[in-house]
Design a protein around this nucleic acid. Structure first.
Lengths: 118, 118
DNA sequence: TGATAATATCAGTCCATATTTATATGAATA
DNA sequence: TATTCATATAAATATGGACTGATATTATCA
């Protein structure tokens, strides 16, 4: 399985967004819920403006959506399927064992092998 | 679905690693293959020492493994299941459509709803 | 309508880390 | 054994973006 340039150009910015620890914390903290910003501020312990900044990044990247309800703006995941993806990643990480240098006896040379060609 | 602190403390560093664009490029470029460093250097266009640095980060985080073969050191994915995870993420990203504010008619208030409690 | 609360925006600073340059290490070869 | 090639390491520097403080915007309430 290989990812072409288009695949990568799609993955890179998305992973960049969720690669930031506090943004991931916000996403995980949201889960299935919808929370107003004040709750996110308290849950994360971050400054209000910092939270607002991260929420904007998440919103513009399509990870969360916002809805104003009176004085509050509620945020929740734009698509909760993301949780499944994160869950898969978590499970994968859990099953990794540092003592196994060759996971699942995967052959080292499993594909194209080159010393001088790309 | 919620991720507790332990889950998050596992996900955060991992996503931090692959959230760096060039490291993700290296992983995607490896795919099923095993490549010597020179190939990775040429494929990415990065400097040799920069590649070496990123490979070390990937290696220490358990994403790749290295094997010396004579004058060359070959790198490949430590566990190619990662490709499936990335593939799922890619597919998810592809199916996201910016014009749909409410993905799959997911209810906005899908869970815990609070304005003042965390 | 003014005060207050919730939240976003802006500009500047700070900090983590990517990158570069110099050098060290390991392997192959003459 | 010295040289060359491949790659890693160390230190310094550059860069991007997280964070902060000030301020603006929006909604609510008296």
């Amino acid at each position: 399985m290989k990812f072409n340039e288009q695949d990568q150009s799609r993955l890179i910015p998305a992973l960049k967004v969720i690669g930031e620890p506090n943004r991931l914390r916000i996403l995980c903290g949201l889960g299935m819920a919808c929370l107003p910003v004040v709750d996110i501020i308290h849950a994360t312990g971050l400054g209000q403006t910092n939270v607002s900044f991260h929420l904007r990044v998440l919103r513009e990247a399509g990870f969360v959506r916002a809805e104003r309800r009176g004085a509050f703006i509620f945020y929740c995941l734009a698509d909760r399927d993301l949780l499944q993806i994160l869950q898969n990643l978590k499970l994968w990480l859990e099953t990794r064992v540092e003592t196994h240098p060759n996971r699942k006896n995967q052959p080292l040379m499993g594909g194209h092998n080159s010393a001088t060609t790309t």
